[in-house]
Every structure is written in C-alpha cells, then in structure tokens.
Design a protein around this nucleic acid. Structure first.
Lengths: 197, 197
DNA sequence: ACTCTAAGTAATCGACTGATAACATGTCAA
DNA sequence: TTGACATGTTATCAGTCGATTACTTAGAGT
C-alpha cells in the first residue's frame, strides 16, 4: 500500500517546497503559534524531517521571514532597475506603489513579515527584522526620495500589512468604521483582494 | 514560614494587578508565545488562579488587548474633548500627534496591540482587532479630517508601532540604514525613548 | 470567639511540542 | 547487479501547556 506515498525528490526541491508550506503555516500562526508538525503536515512530510532539514524551528522561521522580506525588496529593486527614476515624478512614485500593490495578492508572506516584525520577544527574530527593514529602507532610498518621503512610503505599507493581517479586506461590513479606512487605504486594489479572499 | 507569602487582596484589585502583569508578559511573547504560567509568575500568583480569574487564556488576552487599544483611543479622545478642534490647523494636528508620542513611553501595551493586530490566525483575536481598529479610526475622524488624512495619521502610527516592536530605538547603530528611518520617524521623541530602554 | 465566604494554592491530567536516534528505501554510478 | 549514499520515516522522549479538581486559609461580619 503506497497510498499518499511521497515520491522522492532532490533535497533542494523538497526544501523549497517545505519553505513555501512553512510560509503558509507561519502566516497563520506566527512563530510561536505554529508547530513544526503543522509545517510538516502542510508540506506533506514527516515532522522530524522538517526539523532536520533546517536545524531548529527558529532557523526555519528566519529563512521563511528573510525570504518574505526579500521578495518585497526585490519587487522595489525591479522597478528601480528597469530605468531611470525621477524622485520628483508622481508617476514614478505610483510605479513603486504599484509594485507593492501587486504583492498584496499573496497574503502569506506579508503576514509572515508582520509576525517577524512584531516578534520582538525573540532576540534573533528582532535582530533579523531590524536588518531586513533596514535593507528595504535602503532600497527605497535608491529612489532619491528624502528621508521623510521614504518614511511615509514605508508607513503606508505598514498600514496595508496590518490591515491584511487582521483580514480587514475580507470583512467589509457596510457602516462599520473600519470599512471606510479599508476602502480608503486599498483603493482600487480592493477588488483584486476580494476575489481571492 | 511565610516568606514571599502574598497578602490577600480584593478580587477586583488582584484582577487589575494580573492584567497589568499580563500586559508585560504578552508584550514580550504575544498570545501564542506566552504561557499562563508566565503571566502568573509575573503577577506573583499561581497559574490556576490566573486561568480561573479569566476563564481561558484567550479571554485574558482579549481583555489585555482591548485595554491596550482603549488606552490609545482614550488619549485621542482627551485631546478632542479638551476644546474645539480645527481640522485645517497644523497645530491641532500636532496635538494629536503629541498625544500618541506621549504614549510611546510605555512600550508594553503598544506591543500587545501589534500582537493583536497581527494574530489573524485566531479568529476571535482578529475580530477584536478589526473592532478596536474601527473604533480608533472613528475617534480620529472626530477631528474632522477627511479619510485620506486620517488614514495617513493611522499609517504613521503603525510605522512607529512596528519600529518599537522590533526595538529599533534601542539599537541605533551609526551607519545602519535603519537608523536613518528610526531618527526620521521618531524625531524628538527619540531621546524620550532612549532614556528608558 | 466563631463561622462562613471569598481568596488563593497544590496536585494532577491529557495533549502537544521540538528534538533525537534508529531505521527504511529509492536511485544512481560502476 | 550491487553497493552506497541521499531521501525519507517511525518510534520515542523529556519538557511544557492550559485546564480541572480538591484543598487551604485569611479575614469580615456578628
């Protein structure tokens, strides 16, 4: 009987698969709230295999977290690399915003990112969060924006992250005060989000 | 031998004491990362007593979370209640900002708030987060600001919360990209924060 | 002084957690 | 074909978790 039997796979491919499963799992429960067994079940492998592949649960989370933030940084860098960027152009600013908006489709890694940012109680996670946030800010500064403008851009992104983490776009009750904030914050991107809630 | 013996106390007072201890504990570890025993030790009572006082750990967290957000809402309401508020006045806007800045001294309840906002994986916490965020937004709207201005105000607050959660103000390394963001985001309030790090 | 209620603890439970060790097997090179 | 290594699993463990039960005792009211 080999029902459900997992076919063998190159370790590197399997690792990739587990990281993506872990992203989904950690997105839901955060670092402390997600067991290595939950990750294993999500990935369709055994729990000890997950642990042995990454050493410890903390190492796994750090890898998942750094990838999540890296994906955002890459999206910004792609915009900056695709041609000259005018710091005074509203169009170019919109291009940066759009790059982020497109990422909103995948809730998982945004939530992982927020879990990492708020896990100040675990020293190694907090240190990684500061490092990653610094890198993202450095990338955004490549626009030529001054500190204040870059700061406001990051702040707006944080608002979107928080709203997604509390699943506001999936709960647009008419008349609820939060609905005004949600529609105002997400704008056109809202339809994009509803379709896959 | 009655060393360390806790003197009796009215249940209401003890409850208040446990809630404050729980705020400190949850600020560090979040909901999933904090045991009821950790709360009990912080409060100086036994673990079963903590559980029986609040029913479940979830009920305790919800109470702590709602108090934390309520404290912010109250700070804003105090500004709005102290006299007429001109939505076009930069001074009045600064008064709202200052109300928040003053709260930054207590990291604990800000971190609890962020843990609640990002705990989307626990339905009841996410629902409470949406409710509380909606109330805060409704309060801010009492300024007379339009949605966009209120949204930007909230966004800025979220950035500060995130920076505090990752303990950026305590790690101002010269040359690190994050340092620019931190100094730019906190401004004068930074000295206030360093002194009690 | 006595009693009765409310404040608080000790003991304990089954479930779960991350991690380790031992074992099994598919697959590729020779 | 066969052997050896990489890919996986099963079994297991000590520690921790939230919660329940049963017990203790301080202290207000009479």
């Amino acid at each position: 009987m080999n029902v459900g039997k997992v076919s063998r796979m190159a370790a590197e491919d399997r690792r990739e698969l587990v990281i993506q499963a872990a992203t989904r799992a950690f997105a839901r429960g955060g670092y402390a709230g997600t067991s290595t067994d939950a990750v294993a079940k999500e990935a369709g492998v055994s729990q000890p295999y997950v642990v042995r592949m990454f050493g410890t649960k903390l190492d796994l989370f750090l890898e998942v977290f750094q990838r999540a933030v890296g994906r955002i940084r890459d999206a910004f860098e792609a915009v900056l690399d695709e041609g000259p960027f005018d710091p005074d152009s509203e169009d170019d600013k919109a291009r940066m915003g759009l790059a982020y908006t497109e990422l909103l489709e995948d809730h998982d890694f945004l939530q992982v990112m927020m879990h990492g940012f708020t896990a100040g109680g675990v020293d190694e996670i907090a240190a990684a969060a500061r490092q990653c946030m610094g890198e993202v800010f450095a990338t955004i500064k490549r626009t030529g924006w001054d500190d204040e403008r870059a700061r406001d851009f990051v702040a707006y992104g944080m608002l979107l992250n928080v709203m997604i983490s509390m699943r506001a776009p999936e709960h647009l009750e008419p008349g609820h005060p939060l609905t005004a904030l949600t529609t105002c914050a997400f704008g056109d991107a809202l339809e994009l989000l509803e379709s896959q809630a």
